[in-house]
Write a protein that binds this DNA or RNA. Structure first.
Length: 492
RNA sequence: CGGGGAGUGGCGCAGCCCGGUAGCGCAUUCGCUUUGGGAGCGAAGGGUCGCAGGUUCAAAUCCUGUCUCCCCGACCA
């Protein structure tokens, strides 16, 4: 275990913060609740962005950009959406500062520069986008519109945690317009599938697809689909959402189109998003008490090389050999970093790259050089082996695949171990207390029961899963009919 | 907005109860020895103790006021 590292079991939040800190991912900024994403953290986010963007484009979506500011009158047009976000909005009221006559060298808000209409800093962009779409859509020929934007949004949260909840965060938000209800629902599900595939294949994080209950639904949506993941402390994390918005926004912004038959109809909509919260999910899914563990597919560099030497002469010999090997490996499409800094010692570097979660570390000193060998250490198992240099690139390629698969399997096993059925409320409470994790239980479908359980246990319904076989039963609290089990958990 | 805690070199902290003019670890700089798991020794630089008052010969320490941050709740992707 790394020096001075709190273990996951001792204090999970401290452990989490330590990982973020030691891996050099992000830090709190001087601005309340806001986060500085440092270069290494951002590099991982960029890998995520690139892959998601590719998947969106492969399914016919394009990127665009809409304004940061939403005039209040537009923001409040869709009432439920506005109400849902009202309590966490930053609002711009003035557009100018002036020097303070009472305090030299200080500025004050110029009271004469008050905006006629306040501007809401977007907590999400439905309003400004649907106001724009109104001008883009006249006929069925203009549909569908499949647009995504990469942007920042602001939600003035009371309490924040790096990546998991910050006042400002980066995300992508897709906003689509369709001619029919069916098509909009299909889009909503297509995106959910993309999110699930991304989480599982790239983040190596198993997720459950499902639909939210009414109380957890996005404000202004008819249905919210989600992917839910389980973190190592037994708490659930909503990792992505895809909303079927029905005609709510079309009605609020009066977006109608002429059908083939010449009738005027409201447009059907979806919206969907994932945020830098995925970084938090990634950290909490795989990391251990030695730091971050990255799945190879999202690692800014998949392999790091550390030369070991005494004196200039040995340094040249080893570094030159490593440079040669690096070329071979890179030819396979593997990203490699050769750390030949003379300012840090090998032990330091070993520790540093473990904190940073680099999947494979190669080390070579004279001993290995003379024997034609190289030391290969994998981050997921911390296993070290001496390989022959011959055919190394191929071996590493397979090893990376193996690590990716192993991380996913480990996460699946963990989740299965922490997934249980509860048939009585007593059993439910005891599982929650002892083990946490996902609890599959029957629920009568009412908001009252859901609220009661939340108040008494702090567990919420994460989703009504799509995959679960429809096994009817009786609500664990009220004994009323239940069509299928739903998933409960304490959540982030 | 309720309930707790903390502000002391870049970072993490001790000192405060019982007042005597600031210390430890890490980091930084220099020198020598080192380099297969966060090197060792020696030396050096760096702080108006959150801010404003008050008590006192004397305040990091006691008193009053004030500001800020963190944690736990409520809210939330």
């Amino acid at each position: 275990m790394a020096k001075g590292f709190p273990t996951r079991k001792e204090d999970y939040s401290q452990w989490y913060n330590e990982i973020v800190n030691r891996a050099d991912l992000a830090e709190h900024s001087a601005v309340r609740g806001c986060m500085v994403i440092k270069p290494y953290g951002y590099a991982i986010w960029e890998k995520m962005q690139q892959q998601l963007d590719k998947m969106f484009k492969e399914t016919g979506h394009s990127n665009a950009y809409f304004p940061l500011f939403v005039p209040k009158s537009l923001f409040e047009a869709e009432e439920k959406n506005a109400e849902g976000f009202a309590k966490e909005c930053a609002v711009v009221t003035h557009y100018r500062l002036k020097s303070n006559p009472d305090e030299a060298g200080k500025l004050m808000v110029d009271p004469e520069a008050k905006l006629e209409e306040e501007l809401v800093v977007r907590p999400t962009s439905e309003a400004i986008i649907w106001n724009t779409y109104k001008g883009w859509i006249q006929s069925y020929r203009d549909l569908p519109i499949l647009v995504n934007q990469w942007a920042n949004v602001v939600r003035w949260e009371m309490r924040t945690r790096l990546f998991l909840r910050t006042a400002e965060f980066l995300w992508q938000e897709g906003h689509t317009a369709h001619a029919t209800r069916e098509e909009a629902i299909e889009e909503t599900k297509t995106i959910l599938d993309i999110y699930a595939e991304f989480a599982q294949k790239f983040m190596a994080m198993p997720v459950i697809k499902g639909v939210k209950t009414e109380s957890e639904r996005f404000a202004g949506a008819l249905d919210t689909y989600c992917i839910e993941a389980l973190m190592q402390d037994g708490k659930a994390l909503q990792a992505g959402t895809s909303h079927f918005l029905g005609q709510n926004f079309a009605k609020a912004f009066d977006v109608k189109f002429a059908t083939k038959e010449g009738k005027q109809e409201y447009v059907w909509a979806s919206s969907w998003g994932v945020s830098t919260r995925l970084m938090g999910a990634l950290i909490m899914s795989h990391s251990d008490d030695n730091g971050l563990v990255l799945p190879p597919k999202l690692a800014p560099y998949q392999v790091v090389m550390v030369p070991i030497y005494k004196g200039e002469e040995q340094r040249d010999t080893v570094v030159n050999k490593l440079k040669e090997i690096k070329k071979d490996i890179e030819a396979k499409g593997i990203s490699v970093k050769l750390d030949d800094r003379d300012t840090h010692k090998p032990g330091w570097k070993f520790a540093e790259y473990e904190f940073k979660g680099v999947p494979i570390r190669l080390a070579m000193g004279m001993r290995d050089f003379d024997a034609g060998n190289i030391e290969v250490a994998r981050r997921d198992t911390l296993e070290k082996k001496v390989y022959e240099q011959k055919d190394l690139a191929n071996k590493l390629e397979h090893l990376l695949e193996n690590i990716q698969e192993n991380l996913y399997q480990k996460a699946v096993d963990f989740r299965e171990d922490k997934s249980q059925k509860a048939d009585s409320y007593e059993e439910f409470k005891s599982i929650l207390k002892q083990k946490g994790g996902f609890i599959y239980a029957h629920w009568d479908g009412t908001a009252e029961t859901e609220e009661k359980i939340k108040k008494e246990t702090k567990a919420t319904i994460r989703c009504i899963p799509f995959t679960e076989k429809k096994e009817a039963g009786k609500c664990m609290v009220t004994g009323k009919h239940s069509a299928q089990r739903v998933i409960f958990a304490k959540a982030y």
